[in-house]
């Protein structure tokens, strides 16, 4: 249902082209649960944003259910059935949790029960939250969970979550893991989660390891986990050279 061919994204830094994505190939089948993992700065979020249309790739193709969506707008992709939960969701002065869930679900008058079901899936009590504004009065973890609930509200064919665990406490994270497990069990949605958490990786049908803008490894979790736990030293060029010597 999702096919990414030789996807690239370059930015200009001081007159030089720097590759953020350098020929990414990836496929996801209907009902599959993919975890995309890898070191910081490797290109995971850029890849997710390219699928949603939030960044315009400089090369390659994105096919969704056989349709080339590479140059479609964000709105068009959303209406085709792609959704994306931001790693750092924006806040809105004046927009309430209920408003966001209503917009996400496409229902004209979302009920309190609908909101309750959605918020419960991310470990929030509807009574405490539905009429609150998504502004700075909410903590980072609360905003993040509301963001995830907004993606769940859409029920899209393809759901992408960008580091859903970031900023969330351990108890809520357990609840979230259960939600992902239950969602996957229905096999109705294709789920791509960018994550570094072993408990999320455990849910995966397929794990994609992205580093340096490329897919370095792809396979089952059993195949990929050894690479993840390998001693790595990617942060400092000086150290890397020392290790290579």
């Amino acid at each position: 249902m999702l096919e990414i061919k030789n996807l690239s994204f370059e930015v200009n830094e001081g007159g030089e082209a720097v590759g953020i994505l350098r020929g990414v190939d990836l496929t996801a089948e209907k009902g599959e649960f993919l975890v995309v993992t890898g070191p910081n700065g490797g290109g995971k979020t850029t890849l997710a944003k390219a699928i949603m249309g939030l960044v315009e790739p400089t090369g390659g193709e994105i096919l969704f259910n056989g349709q080339d969506v590479t140059h479609l707008s964000v709105t068009e992709r959303a209406n085709l059935g792609i959704s994306y939960g931001f790693q750092q969701p924006p806040r809105f002065k004046g927009l309430r949790v209920r408003d966001l869930l209503e917009l996400a679900s496409g229902k004209k008058d979302i009920t309190r029960d609908d909101c309750c079901l959605l918020l419960n899936k991310v470990g929030l009590c509807a009574g405490d939250y539905i009429d609150r504004e998504i502004d700075t009065s909410l903590s980072g973890g609360e905003v993040k969970r509301i963001e995830i609930a907004s993606v769940l509200a859409r029920g899209s064919e393809l759901m992408i979550f960008d580091e859903p665990e970031a900023g969330i406490d351990l108890w809520s994270f357990s609840r979230l893991t259960e939600t992902f497990r239950a969602l996957h069990a229905t096999r109705e949605n294709t789920i791509i989660v960018i994550s570094h958490q072993e408990r999320i990786i455990e849910l995966a049908d397929k794990v994609i390891l992205i580093a340096d803008g490329k897919v370095s490894h792809a396979g089952t979790k059993e195949e990929i986990l050894p690479f993840i736990f390998d001693p790595t030293n990617v942060g400092c060029a000086y150290d890397r050279k020392a290790v290579e010597k």
Partner: peptide, 14 residues
């Protein structure tokens, strides 16, 4: 904020 617009566009709004 551009991110606010982007967020709502990912929900299907123009």
């Amino acid at each position: 904020a551009g991110e606010q617009l982007q967020k709502l566009m990912t929900l299907g709004l123009t």
